[in-house]
Design a protein around this nucleic acid. Structure first.
Lengths: 206, 206
DNA sequence: ATGGTAGCAGACCGATCGGTCTTGTGTTGT
DNA sequence: ACAACACAAGACCGATCGGTCTGCTACCAT
């Protein structure tokens, strides 16, 4: 009945999304035109607009994928240890490792690029921020800390700080600095011996 | 000899810069066209281009002014107390108070908007980041903390976190959370009794 | 009063944006 | 072999970008 599709839509969709995500990550959403995406993919406009009827649709797909990446990061982090205290610290470590060399967090950057309150990109980003807050809250609660919400907010503050633009300009040992800070925070909040014992270093050597 | 200028160039320059700064702050540099600035000011293009020969010049002026604001913030913070420990905490408090309702830090946002390494805006922003790092380092050193650089980086991490886009989406007591965290950090780093004594609240109630 | 000029308004320019439509070509199933 | 189809290429559209240029108006010193 059908004349057999040359390219399955999923394949095209994936190729377009890959190229767009790469360009968006590197140059920002506003700065990248769809023509550039098309040139990168090597397809016609026809295909792109079949998969993503508008640029906003493409942006939303890009952000949703970024959300998935975060979820994967969180899951794999959770898998490394069962202790919730270590999970929080490990999360900070992971973020601090994957930030250098990038422009930061796609969701945060894109959120900043679209101040119009009704833009679909903001919706996705806000949902994500809310989810992250909830996820951190869950882990923090498992630690048995007396004030889990404050613990979660503190860790989130560090993670946001790591994603901050221009942070790369700092010393290259941001990983150690942020991880040891997270460790101190967790220690203070869980009451498990907060005092600094000078052993901040712990083979953090990136 | 001259037919008397109707508007002194300084006045025009200031009015243009005011309008541009307001729009850039609210909508982002890329999203604001010069026509919109002109409409806001109520002057002709002639005047704008006489003061700022190109948009980049306007952007740079906007960023330099933002740097001045920061310097003022820092100075007034320093003036509130002579104790360097309190200065760091007060700085965090100030930032946490002025962030809500804004789009964050103009310098950080604009830096994120221009990934091209040779853009003049990046130059200004990078200089600022470097200066801030140095300023925080100076104060941290005055505390006599054994590792002042780490203390400074920790405080900077919090400040960057506060400026993070989408942070406004969080609870409204970010001020208290960040300030108490800063307090804990300073206590830990200076060795002055790190243990949490539950008295995080201190009439922080915005 | 009048000539000269500062400055606002807006036409205008080429480039580029997101998005649509056409055209030519190469593959496919029959 | 041939008709049907999918696709890449790109012309095209209106809007808007940064930036230039030109009138017209209103004010000024003389």
């Amino acid at each position: 009945m059908w004349h057999m599709v040359r390219q399955s839509t999923e394949v095209v969709r994936e190729r377009v999304l890959n190229a767009a995500a790469d360009l968006f990550d590197r140059y920002g959403v506003h700065a990248v035109g769809l023509q550039r995406v098309i040139d990168e993919v090597g397809c016609g406009k026809y295909m792109l607009y079949r998969e993503f009827p508008s640029k906003d649709d493409l942006i939303v797909a890009y952000l949703r994928r970024s959300c998935q990446y975060w979820d994967q990061t969180l899951d794999s982090t959770r898998a490394t240890t069962t202790r919730p205290e270590e999970q929080l610290i490990e999360l900070v470590r992971t973020v601090s490792r994957q930030v250098p060399g990038t422009r930061g967090c796609p969701l945060r950057n894109t959120y900043a690029e679209f101040p119009e309150h009704d833009h679909p990109a903001r919706q996705v980003a806000l949902e994500h921020f809310s989810l992250v807050r909830q996820q951190l809250g869950d882990i923090a609660r498992q630690t048995g800390a007396p004030e889990p919400d404050r613990l979660a907010e503190r860790i989130l503050l560090i993670i946001n700080g790591l994603y901050s633009p221009g942070h790369t300009a700092g010393p290259e040992d941001m990983s150690e600095i942020s991880v040891t800070l997270a460790r101190d925070i967790v220690a203070v909040e869980t009451g498990k011996h907060p005092t600094r014992d000078q052993s901040g270093q712990r083979a953090e050597a990136r």
